[in-house]
């Protein structure tokens, strides 16, 4: 485990969400494995220059999703997580979000070819 996450402190996206999203990517892509220790909330807050509660909220969010195990007086650890069965509504919701994201990319001037390449790369990563 030697990966890093990056946070944009000037982004309109709240820092809590950025931390949770970045850690989730590490978890889903397997760079963080069950049993791995995460930096303590205090350490992460100092390194990122954020308030303790901002990082704690992100950790709690991941704990609620079952990704990490939070126990008082101990560093957060990556938990064994069984993927829940996604409902049809959830899949439809994600499809809608993906379409919205692709539309946003096109609106920002990214070519259709480029978007397709990016999605293909992502799809290969998901299947590997």
């Amino acid at each position: 485990m030697a990966s890093r996450i990056r946070i944009d402190l000037d982004s309109p996206v709240p820092a809590t969400r950025q931390i949770a999203d970045a850690l989730r990517v590490e978890l889903v892509e397997g760079r963080l494995k069950p049993g791995d220790e995460l930096p303590s909330v205090r350490r992460a807050a100092v390194d990122l220059g954020l308030h303790f509660n901002t990082v704690a909220d992100a950790y709690r969010q991941l704990a609620a999703e079952g990704w990490i195990d939070l126990k008082h007086g101990r560093s957060a650890r990556v938990a064994e997580r069984k993927a829940p069965a996604a409902s049809r509504d959830a899949v439809a919701g994600y499809r809608q979000r993906l379409r919205a994201l692709v539309s946003q990319m096109r609106a920002d001037g990214i070519s259709s070819r480029r978007i397709a390449d990016e999605l293909e790369t992502l799809a290969k990563g998901v299947l590997s």
């Binding site: 485990m1 990056r6 946070i7 944009d8 402190l9 220790e37 390194d47």
Partner: peptide
């Protein structure tokens, strides 16, 4: 200046 922060996940 753009403000970026990095968190190293290694202990």
């Amino acid at each position: 200046a753009p403000r970026k922060a990095v968190l190293d996940l290694a202990g």
